[in-house]
Design a protein around this nucleic acid. Sequence first.
RNA 1: GGCGGAGUAGCUCAGCUGGUUAGAGCGGCGGAAUCAUAAUCCGUAGGUCGGGGGUUCAAGUCCCUCCUCCGCUACCA
Length: 519
Amino acid sequence: MSEPFYITTAIAYPNGRPHIGHAYEAIATDAIARFQRLMGRDVRMVTGTDEHGLKMAQTARAAGRETLEFADEMSSYFRQMCAGLDISNDVFMRTSDAKHHEASIALWKAMEAKGDLYLDRYEGWYSVRDEAFYGEEELTEGEGGVKLSPQGTPVEWTVEESWFFRLSKYQDALLKLYSENPDFIRPESRKNEVLRFVEGGLKDLSVSRTSFDWGVPVPGSPGHVMYVWVDALTTYLSGLGFPDQNSDYARFWPANVHIIGKDIVRFHAVYWPAFLMSADLPLPQQVFGHGFLLNRGEKMSKSLGNVVDPMELAERFGVDALRYFLMREVSFGQDGTYSAEAIVSRVNADLANSFGNLAQRTLSFISKNLEGRLPQSDVKAAEDEELLALVDDACRNDVTREFAAFAFSQGLDSWMRAVFACNQYIDAQAPWALRKTDPARMEAVLETLLRAMRSLAIAVQPVIPTSASKLLDQLGIEAHGRDYAALNDQDYYARLASSGVTIAPPTPIFPRLELTAED
RNA sequence: GGCGGAGUAGCUCAGCUGGUUAGAGCGGCGGAAUCAUAAUCCGUAGGUCGGGGGUUCAAGUCCCUCCUCCGCUACCA
């Protein structure tokens, strides 16, 4: 059995509908998952929704809805987003699921058994919106003397009985973890922030609430529900079937990587490993904090009115176009910007004009001049080998190396260079001229192009799965010959030719996009 | 205030441990071609590499300082 690979997205809080940031994270995580599958790994990808907490309960009440019923609806939007964007998650885990409660309770009991949980009183300024306590010194004065949290949300003096987790006990263990596993937190800049935070000393963490009941009940402590992060992070375990030892948990935990936004690095890089250490569970190998997407360089916000529905973008430009743009244009780990112009410009240049047109002109030519028969010829030339060497090097080495390192934009850059080389080759060889002067040579040129396009299509599958598979269909490549191992299969063409496969008149796979007046 | 990022051609960005005339894509301009989704290919564009100072035979690439933007964090009030 092949080696397991377990990857997760953050578990979204469905207080509102999914936005482009959720879509970006899901797409990036999916591309990694698909890449690993093509590399032959046995992959599990988990995503889901984190539905507990006061905010959800309040929002539901304000809408006159039953909390769970409201959560059902909100969660469904995220599930639909995944389906709509061709996200290949194996599991969609909801924190309101009974099995998730079971997992959270198991984790809680393990931490309790370790002596890391204790009951105490918590007094302080509490922000309902943030679900967090703040110190007096962190507050600011708002309109009319109202006290505000650092996030600008109202706070009120609250006295609450609360369970605490002995986070302070894990400071040294965490620092040891970071130093022994330099790649535990990535990218580097995020790691530095976490290091400084932990080095600065850790306070015990309040891990239960009594002010509401929409959450996982703390075992043996009526009135208490678990603090959002204990519950939410546990999704990474419950998504595999934990605590059932006969589930996928046994095979896939610990995670290879948790893909998250840069804003929640601390929870994943500090609290989460501390919880796991306390529960004597293995730690994930890596936490990767990606950047944010900016709308025309501006942070998106409801007040600015520039929040974009990712599904609208997908419907307008196409799912693969959106996926390609995000993976190509944004350097993973850094912030990126998007706009309709940028999407149209990038997708037209790379996918429609260069790659799509290459396929269209080649397949169309074969369809018309060879009646779709696969070209075959002995009249090879050095240029043929040179092109294939360049394409194979890009697909087998550059793309796989960069994708493996989550450097999709760099990998796609190499991939595009190979596409450019194909267009240069076809122009230089000019099969349309050879048709009259040297038909045998023409066939050799077309064969070279078919081989090159197969490699390019296989390589780019993680990013644009549907389009790549359409092209592989047009090329007559069988479903079982499309993984990365197939890139090393040099005999495929002879087998394909002798199988009698024909090339049908092609239809364009990557339509050119257009801007509207509003853009 | 501290720490960390970023500031390179009109736009988006590459430039690792310092070393030939600072690169790519897009856009713009000129040309070629016409198989193809009016797509492609070739050539070209002369940016004081945020400002200033320094080290060096040689600096986007190291050091100092200043400016702007961003993130994390602290504190004053």
